[in-house]
């Protein structure tokens, strides 16, 4: 479905701040895959997502979607089939607009003309969908999104993204900014939507147990490279210990990341 071919991304080339975020990375995301991506800070996880979404253009290499090259397509064009959720719950919604306005804006993709689509039928549809979140948001269609809590906003963003029927969703540590209870709620909701709508998913996480628990495929990144790509039975039998040991075998150094180690304790 999505294919990255020998992608290299260098930031600030030719300056003292030159930084190679991705080194010759190739990846094939198959339809129906649920890929979890793990790695320490600066491993290139977010850069990988940014290259798929089109936020950054690669320094070298090509990006294909359904065998069509999209390497130079801007982000807004790719957004028509890619849904994305960020760590910051504020990035998915417009806080000074009402729930119904927000839902209407993201409901259809692409450039929308001067046509009024927000009618009572649409409101009824949004209300019905919101009841599935079980947060009472269905009674708050006219409230500004800025009044919602971070967890509610992220859940709403998820719902809005799902309603726009993307082919691929990118989750960029989308629960990291929430408290544990809300994080679990959003994660459960994510799993429900992924299964319900059979979404192809790439999820970046700092949480090792989560990376192991969820999805059918796991990528481990380090210093701009994918050092481990496991799926099937091998993925199912993974444990945190095995993963840390594997890292040591491949890189001949200890897997170090405060956040990852902390998340093991959870």
């Amino acid at each position: 479905m999505i294919r990255l071919e020998s992608i290299t991304k260098v930031f600030n080339p030719g300056t003292v701040n030159e930084n190679t975020a991705l080194r010759n990375v190739s990846l094939h995301v198959r339809e129906g895959d649920f890929i979890t991506v793990i790695g320490s800070n600066g491993a290139g996880k977010s850069t990988l997502l940014n290259l798929v979404s089109g936020t950054f253009m690669p320094t070298a290499g090509k990006v294909f979607v359904n065998d069509i090259e999209v390497t130079r397509h801007p982000e807004y064009k790719r957004a028509r089939y890619i849904g994305r959720i960020f760590q910051d719950p504020l990035l998915g919604t417009a806080s000074n607009m009402s729930l119904e306005d927000n839902m209407m804006i993201t409901y259809r993709k692409g450039f929308k003309g001067p046509r009024i689509s927000l009618n009572n039928r649409m409101r009824g549809f949004f209300q019905e969908r919101l009841t599935h979140l079980e947060m009472g948001l269905e009674d708050r269609l006219k409230d500004n999104v800025g009044l919602l809590s971070g967890g509610q906003r992220q859940a709403l963003t998820l719902l809005m993204m799902v309603l726009s029927e993307p082919e691929l969703i990118l989750l960029d540590e989308h629960t990291a900014a929430l408290d544990p209870k809300n994080a679990q709620m959003v994660l459960d909701l994510t799993m429900r939507f992924v299964n319900e709508y059979r979404l192809t998913t790439v999820m970046v996480t700092h949480n090792m147990p989560h990376a192991i628990q969820y999805g059918n495929r796991l990528l481990m990144m380090d210093k701009g490279e994918i050092i481990l790509d496991v799926d099937g039975e091998e993925k199912r039998s993974l444990t945190v210990d095995k993963l840390v040991r594997k890292f040591h075998e491949i890189r001949h150094r200890t897997f170090e990341s405060d956040e990852v180690l902390l998340s093991e304790v959870e």
Binding site: P74, E75, Y76, K77, A79, R80, G83, R84, F86, L90, L91, G92, T93, A94, S95, N96, M97, D101, N102, M104, I105, T106, R108, K109, G110, F111, K112, G113, P114, R115, I116, S117, L118, M161, S164
Partner: peptide, 26 residues
Amino acid sequence: FFRTDLGLTMGAMGNNEQMVIATGAN
């Protein structure tokens, strides 16, 4: 105008440009 789909999307512009990009509009 600001009740139309185009107007609503424009309303999100000043608030959250990333959201507008995510809807596939330039």
